[in-house]
Amino acid sequence: MKKQKKLAGLQKRKAIAGYMFILPFIVGFLAFMIQPMAQSLYMSFCDVQVGAGSFSPQFKGIVNYVRAFTLDAEFNRLLTEEISRMCINSLAIMVFSFFVALILNQKFKGRALVRAIFFLPVILSSGVIIGVETDNKLMASIQDAIGQTASSGISITGAIEEILQTAGIGTRAFSKVFEIVDGIYDVAIASGIQIIIFLSGLQTISQSMYEAADIEGCTAWESLWKITFPMISSLFVVNWIYTIVDFCMRTDNEVIKKISEEITIQINYGFASAMSWIYFGVVILIIGISSLIISKGVYYYE
């Protein structure tokens, strides 16, 4: 009896210690997440007047949401464009980072150097740099337009593109593929962290499994699908979510640009929060549905 009580005491002490450890998170979460989220949700239903020293929201119902969907000229177009760009890009990033991780996990000369180069984008694609980069692209395209008359028809991909386009079968699908091929730089530069996560997963697979499969007559291609794929399938969920979230945070995201313009230039907080809630809702929906689908296929070892 006495021992039981002591054990309960230890458990209680550990529980309290646990709470002490995560206390900063709880405080931060309540103060800087829940409160602003609730406030922003409330503001999205309001007409917010900002005066000197205070701001006064007036409840107006779903006016802001109606405005976003029906009145605003840009929002619908930007939203659908960004969402479809996000889905296609994320898929490309997943495939790319998975295969790069597979290659980087093999042994070859200069592996350390190649790895170092592949993770460079973690630095290069973060924050302001990618935003400046897109501005730069605008200028590059202007320069291209000027220079194009001088040098057209040299590129191999351009030629292949034209041949396939004229074949007339699945033109739309082809054009999507070419979009990704043209944007391979964007894909490569956005997949640094995903490669690291996949690599760390590949390290956990024990080598003896491959050996056993090899002895049983399994080819490398088969063991890729039968061993590697199931063993790190749980990482696909992690990476998929990370990729989508990362895409939402990028500064070259048109929807985000519009929202922050609404805040800093138009000073229309209500409308801006309504738009960001719509965007957030759509993204959450996509994350939820897609990770449910992916996690159906996840295989858990142990």
Binding site: P36, M37, S40, V245, C248, I256, I263, Y269, A272
Partner: peptide, 22 residues
């Protein structure tokens, strides 16, 4: 909640954080 923090883009709450600290 931690997962929520990962998922919620800071832009969603940026308006109200802006006012929060104003």
């Amino acid at each position: 909640c931690v997962l929520l923090v990962i998922i919620v883009p800071p832009q969603t709450i940026s308006t109200s954080l802006y006012l929060h600290f104003r």
